[in-house]
């Protein structure tokens, strides 16, 4: 790999720009996409691997190309600096997610409870507006408090977030959907919210609930059959 290509790649990653490194096999000829004049067909194929987030070898006009997808890191926005969040944050970091915890209650959102974690103490809707969830972002609300959860869910539903989960029982969730309906969200839209949150693995403790949430996030992202 040429050093200038590596530098370009590092620069794109630092700027959170999705790029694809295309390598012709076995000669090793390389292009960084979409920022160079690449052979026809390569750009479209590169778009597909970024979309699927799956690096692969493809054949274009009889030539073999390995397309390596470099997407920006996945993100997780956790609304509610609660006990479950304390278990969820380090586990999500281990899975490669860039995590932000949002909670305006400073007693909860303290450095002592979340050492080294990006914490926003703005009101959740303002925090969400600043974070701008995209198609590589998961949003989980954990506060149980409609004043905090609802504005975050409202913003999440208006975003491209690939996963939206809300902690709370079926009864709580039904009431929540009623309130979100009043904010203008229809049933199709609200079906994006996973509530009660997490896969049903019989989770009891905070780390177990965190595991069930992360398992569901992975399952949704990987389009596992169990989540439909």
């Amino acid at each position: 790999m040429r050093l200038d290509l590596l530098a370009g790649l590092e620069e794109a990653r630092a700027a959170l720009r999705p790029v694809v490194l295309a390598t012709r096999l076995p000669s090793g000829e390389q292009f960084l996409l979409p920022y160079t004049d690449a052979p026809d067909g390569l750009a479209a194929a590169a778009g597909s691997v970024l979309q699927a987030d799956r690096s692969q070898t493809v054949e274009i006009d009889g030539a073999q190309w390995f397309l390596q997808a470099y997407n920006p890191p996945l993100r997780l926005v956790v609304v509610g600096a609660v006990h479950i969040a304390q278990a969820l944050v380090p586990m999500a970091a281990g899975l490669g997610y860039g995590v932000t915890v949002a909670d305006p209650r400073r007693a909860f959102a303290s450095d002592e409870r979340f050492p080294g974690v990006t914490v926003s103490t703005e009101w959740p809707d303002e925090a969400m507006d600043a974070l701008r969830p995209d198609s590589r972002t998961a949003v989980v609300t954990l506060t149980h408090d409609p004043k905090l959860d609802d504005p975050a869910l409202d913003r999440a539903l208006r975003s491209q977030a690939f996963y939206i989960g809300a902690l709370g029982s079926r009864k709580t969730h039904a009431a929540r959907l009623g309130r979100l309906r009043e904010l203008g969200h229809d049933d199709d839209s609200m079906a994006r919210i996973r509530g009660p949150v997490g896969l049903d693995i019989g989770a009891v403790t905070a780390p177990e609930i965190a595991l069930s949430i992360l398992a569901q996030i992975v399952a949704v992202r990987r389009k596992a059959a169990l989540v439909g």
């Binding site: 096999l25 799956r54 690096s55 070898t57 390995f66 390596q68 997808a69």
Partner: peptide, 17 residues
């Protein structure tokens, strides 16, 4: 030198990339 998995078949332990 950099080594990259470019293709896998069957139960390979690490994915392409």
């Amino acid at each position: 030198a950099i080594a990259t998995v470019t293709e896998t078949w069957g139960s390979s332990p690490r994915p392409a990339g």
